[in-house]
């Protein structure tokens, strides 16, 4: 395993992790207080995007390439689940 990144990368890494974690909290707030279903779907989709960023940042911090497969999988699952949820809100059924 590689050593922890040098300071010139470590400080932006911490900043980015803090920013995306804060974004995750904003999404949680939007899921709890939303005027409609479509806002909740949007907040879930944004949460998936934030989580992908956090996983990539964690992989950079550890200096490991293993986490890219996890983020690709989460991106695909997030897209499919968003589309399925929208289909359900549109037609009341996912596969007609």
């Amino acid at each position: 395993m590689n050593p922890t990144p040098s300071l010139i990368v470590a400080i932006p890494l911490i900043c980015a992790t803090a920013a995306f974690s804060l974004g995750l909290l904003f999404c949680l707030y939007r899921i709890a207080h939303a005027p409609g279903v479509s806002d909740r779907i949007l907040a879930l989709d944004t949460m998936v995007i934030n989580v992908i960023a956090l996983i990539v940042l964690y992989g950079m911090w550890l200096g490991s390439q293993v986490y890219f497969e996890a983020s690709i999988l989460i991106a695909m699952v997030g897209f499919v689940s968003t589309v399925a949820y929208c289909r359900f809100a549109l037609r009341g059924d996912i596969i007609e």
Binding site: V9, P12, L13, C15, A16, A18, A19, F20, L22, G23, L24, F26, C27, R30, L42, A43, T46, N50, A53
Partner: peptide, 15 residues
């Protein structure tokens, strides 16, 4: 990373 964190925060705050 700095630019990305600004964009990500703006996007989630806009939500």
């Amino acid at each position: 990373l700095i630019v990305a964190s600004i964009f990500g925060l703006v996007g989630s705050y806009g939500l």
